[in-house]
Amino acid sequence: MPGWSKIESACDDKHPSLCVLDALSTADQGYRTYSRACKDAGIKPIIRPYWADLPFVNIFQSIVPDLLHQMYQGVIKHLISWLTKAFRHDELDTRCRRIPPNHNIRLFLKGITKLQRVTGKEHSQMCRFLLGLVIGLPLPDGMSPARLLRAVRAMLDFLYLAQYPAHTTETPELLQDALRRFHANKSVFVDLGIRLNFKLPKLHSLEHYILSIVLFSTTDNYDTQ
């Protein structure tokens, strides 16, 4: 099953499930026609998927959020790499070594910019000091860091709100606001020459967190971690 974002981008004028079903209906018109229709819909040319005739199933809603792979090993991993490119490597690592010992934050005494095979747990530990790590650092050419700080804070807000063990009617609105603030300020990474676009499937997946929480409750019910 391909990613939701790929299917949505191919089905701008209709719901993704209808777009996919239309492509599947061409299976009897020859493999070439079927293969082309599936490619246009953003799916693999599989004959008769098991869910096609299930009347009460929206297969796309079964692709639920995964904090470990989508957030910690996805968006947060990207965010840390963007910050590493925005600021000097040595300055970030030096700031890591300056964090005073405490009982709640792991110290990365060798810094974070040269780590390899970083685990989700380590990304989680970095998030605890990530915003403080970049506050006060100057950007190249005298660019104001305000948008960058807003984007980092918004993504961290979204991350921690998505992990709430209980939700009210207000928390989905807070999630939506955090995502809105990130998208409103993410252009700073384009202006810095770090990104050309934000066509990242794991970033797009955040758009579906709110609906999944409303339908299936808190994300700890379906997080692979």
Rank of each mutant, 00 (worst) to 15 (best):
G3R: 02
W4M: 09
I7D: 05
I7H: 07
E8V: 11
C11T: 09
D12E: 12
D12A: 12
H15K: 15
P16N: 08
C19A: 00
A23T: 03
A23W: 08
T26Q: 14
A27D: 07
G30Q: 07
G30W: 07
Y31Q: 08
T33P: 02
T33V: 15
R36F: 10
A37Q: 10
A37I: 02
A37G: 02
A37E: 12
C38G: 04
K39T: 12
K39C: 01
D40I: 00
G42R: 06
G42S: 07
G42Q: 09
I43G: 08
K44V: 00
P45W: 06
P49V: 12
Y50K: 10
A52K: 15
F56S: 11
F60Q: 07
F60L: 15
S62C: 12
L68W: 00
H69P: 12
H69N: 15
Q70F: 03
Q73Y: 00
G74W: 03
G74M: 03
V75M: 01
H78E: 13
I80T: 10
S81Y: 10
W82T: 01
L83P: 02
T84K: 13
F87R: 02
F87V: 04
R88M: 02
R88I: 00
H89S: 12
D90R: 15
E91A: 12
R95Q: 05
R97W: 03
P101D: 14
N102Y: 04
R106T: 15
R106L: 10
R106F: 10
L109G: 03
K110C: 03
K110M: 03
G111N: 07
G111L: 05
T113N: 05
L115F: 06
Q116E: 13
Q116T: 13
R117D: 11
G120I: 02
G120R: 06
K121A: 13
E122I: 09
H123T: 06
S124N: 10
M126G: 09
M126A: 05
F129I: 06
V134G: 02
V134H: 02
I135M: 09
G136E: 05
L137F: 08
L139R: 01
S144I: 01
P145G: 04
A146Y: 13
R147S: 14
L148V: 06
L148D: 03
L149H: 15
R150G: 08
A151Q: 07
R153K: 15
M155S: 07
M155A: 03
L159C: 11
L159H: 08
L161C: 04
A162Q: 04
A162E: 06
Q163C: 14
Q163L: 12
Y164P: 00
P165Y: 14
A166W: 13
T168Q: 11
P172V: 07
P172R: 10
P172C: 09
P172Y: 11
P172F: 11
E173G: 05
E173F: 06
L174I: 00
L175F: 09
D177Y: 13
D177I: 04
A178G: 03
L179G: 03
F182G: 02
F182S: 06
H183F: 10
H183W: 11
A184L: 07
V188A: 01
V188L: 01
L192C: 06
G193C: 08
L196G: 12
N197F: 05
P201V: 02
P201C: 02
P201A: 01
K202S: 09
K202M: 10
L203R: 09
L203Q: 11
L206S: 09
H208D: 12
I210E: 11
I210C: 14
L211N: 07
S212P: 14
V214K: 15
T218I: 14
N221G: 09
Y222A: 06
T224P: 12
